[in-house]
């Protein structure tokens, strides 16, 4: 195994601009193609890692020990084995292949994890919402919860958002997600709403 593994055209936290992603035994780094400040991550800050289909190819989602999330997308399907090996050897982390639900249903179970809300359809995630991207939640009606997203002024900056500046993922694409409403039945409504605020 090489001492350094390089991947081109990778995006950090849904950045507009691609960059180079470099993995080494001590950790990983990402640098935008046009230059600028690199983002680095220590290998021993990595708690778990997931591999799944994203809009731009495949994505590695890293959960850090401090419960924040780092997303890297733009990988090719065939990169998986190489990446799984280096995560195991260098970071003692399993790169878990997480298949998402493709059924197209709008019902399931909203579950609250350490760093994100996961909407599961038949025990498979359909999508995830990192808590860091939520700007507000409220009870919009009986059994209805409105989740608002941090989209800023919409004048998204180029380059990477970086792990330090959260709250930009909802506005990363050309269609910015501003609100999502859930129907939560029964008496759990209040509890779930508070969970979403975490």
């Amino acid at each position: 195994m090489a001492a350094i593994e390089n991947f081109e055209n990778i995006y950090l936290d849904l950045s507009k601009e691609g960059g180079k992603c470099r993995f080494a035994e001590s950790g990983l780094g990402w640098k935008p193609t046009s230059g600028g400040e690199p983002f680095t991550l220590q290998g021993n800050d990595i708690s778990t890692a997931q591999w799944s289909r994203a809009a731009r190819g495949y994505e590695i989602k890293i959960l850090l020990r401090n419960s924040s999330i780092v997303q890297l997308d733009g990988f090719q399907l065939e990169d998986f084995e190489r990446l799984a090996k280096l995560f195991k050897n260098w970071y003692s982390a399993t790169l878990e292949n997480k298949e998402h639900s493709l059924r197209g249903w709008n019902w399931g179970k909203a579950e609250f994890g350490k760093a994100e809300l996961t909407f599961n359809v038949q025990n498979r995630p359909a999508f995830e919402i990192p808590y860091s991207e939520i700007s507000n939640t409220n009870l919009a009606g009986r059994n209805e919860i409105a989740v608002e997203f941090a989209v800023g002024d919409g004048k998204t900056t180029n380059g990477h958002n970086g792990a330090s500046s959260k709250g930009k993922k909802a506005s990363a694409g050309k269609d910015q997600m501003v609100e999502m409403r859930f129907y939560i039945p029964g008496t759990t409504t209040r509890k779930e709403a508070e969970g979403g605020d975490a």
Partner: peptide
């Protein structure tokens, strides 16, 4: 649980 609406801008 249901996703009831999604709004984009």
């Amino acid at each position: 649980h249901f996703v009831r609406s999604l709004t984009f801008r």
